[in-house]
Simulated scan of single mutants.
Amino acid sequence: MLTGMTPPVATECHTVYGRPEPLDWLCLAPHPDDAEIGAGGTLIRLAQAGRAVGILELSRGERGTQGTPDVRVHECARAAAIMGLSWRGNLGLPDGELSDTPEGAHALGAALRLVRPRVLVVPHHRDRHPDHFGTYHLAKRAIHLAQLRKADLGGEPHRIMRVLLYQGNADIHPDLLVDVEGVQDVWEAAVRAHDSQFSGQAISETVTPEIIERRRARQSYWGTLARVRYAEAFEAENALLVDPLAL
C-alpha cells in the first residue's frame, strides 16, 4: 500500500513455534500439513545443515473435514520440532477463500518483512485446489509490496532473492530436484504429526492414511529421474545459475 492511501485492515501473524528471525528459506502453506507433504524433505535437509528454515500457514484449516484449528496448531508445533524448524507461524486468513486480496497481501507482505527469507517456496499456480493457486497469486503481490520502501507495512523493506514452486495436487515440470533419501524417517514422522488428517477416514487423495505411501511413490518417481532413491521436485520462477564444473 502506497503512502497516502488507507492501509487494509491488519491481520496479525501468530507464532506457532520458535521465534521470528531472519530465515534462509520460508515455505508458504495454504493449510497446516501442506508444507510437510509438498516440500518437507527439503526443509528438513536444510534445517539439519544449519540453515534457518520456517513455515508460514496462511489459514488455520478451519474448514477441513477432520480436526479443529486448536488441534491442528498443536500438530504444527509438534511437526516443527521434529523437522528442526527455526520458526513456524500462522497468518489466520480465511480457509477456503485464499486469493490475491489487498488485505491478504498486506498481511503477508508484513510477515515477509518480519522473517526476511532469502528463498520463498510457494504452491504451484497450476494446483487444482483454489487455496493453493490463490496462495501463489497472493504471494506474488506480497513479494512486490514487501520490497517497496513506500508500502505501508511496517518494518524495513525486504527483497526475496529466489522463488520456488512446490508440488501439491498437480503435475509439474521441475527444473530442480532435491535428494531426500537420507531424511525419510524424519519426513514421515513430521507428516504423521498431523494425526487428525492422516489417521482417520480417507477424505481425499491428500487427506488419507495412505498419504505417506502416495507421496513417497511420487518422490520415488522424481528420484528415478535424478538417479537417487527419493527426490522432491520444484519449479524455479527464474532461471537458475549453475556452475558447469558441478555438472
Rank of each mutant, 00 (worst) to 15 (best):
T6V: 06
T6W: 07
P8E: 09
C13E: 02
T15Y: 10
T15H: 10
G18R: 01
P20V: 12
W25A: 00
A29K: 11
H31P: 03
D33C: 06
D34Y: 03
G38K: 03
R45I: 11
G50N: 04
G50I: 08
R51Y: 10
V53A: 01
L56R: 06
L56P: 07
G64P: 00
Q66M: 12
P69D: 09
D70H: 14
V71Y: 11
H74E: 14
A77Q: 11
A80F: 14
A81Q: 12
L85K: 09
S86V: 00
R88F: 09
L93D: 01
P94N: 06
D95N: 12
E97N: 10
L98I: 09
L98Q: 05
T101Q: 04
T101H: 02
H106D: 01
A107C: 01
R116V: 04
R118G: 02
V119E: 02
D127M: 04
P130A: 09
D131G: 11
H132P: 03
L138R: 00
A139Y: 13
K140G: 08
I143V: 13
I143H: 00
R149P: 11
R149W: 13
I160Q: 08
M161F: 08
R162E: 06
V163M: 06
V163R: 03
V163N: 10
L164H: 04
L165M: 13
L165N: 08
A170I: 13
H173I: 14
H173C: 02
V180Y: 11
D185H: 12
W187V: 07
A189P: 09
A193F: 05
G200V: 01
I203Y: 07
T206G: 02
T206D: 08
V207Y: 05
E213G: 14
E213Q: 10
Q219V: 11
Y221E: 06
W222T: 05
G223M: 02
R227W: 09
A231Q: 08
A233I: 12
E237I: 09
A239R: 15
D243H: 14
P244I: 14
A246N: 11
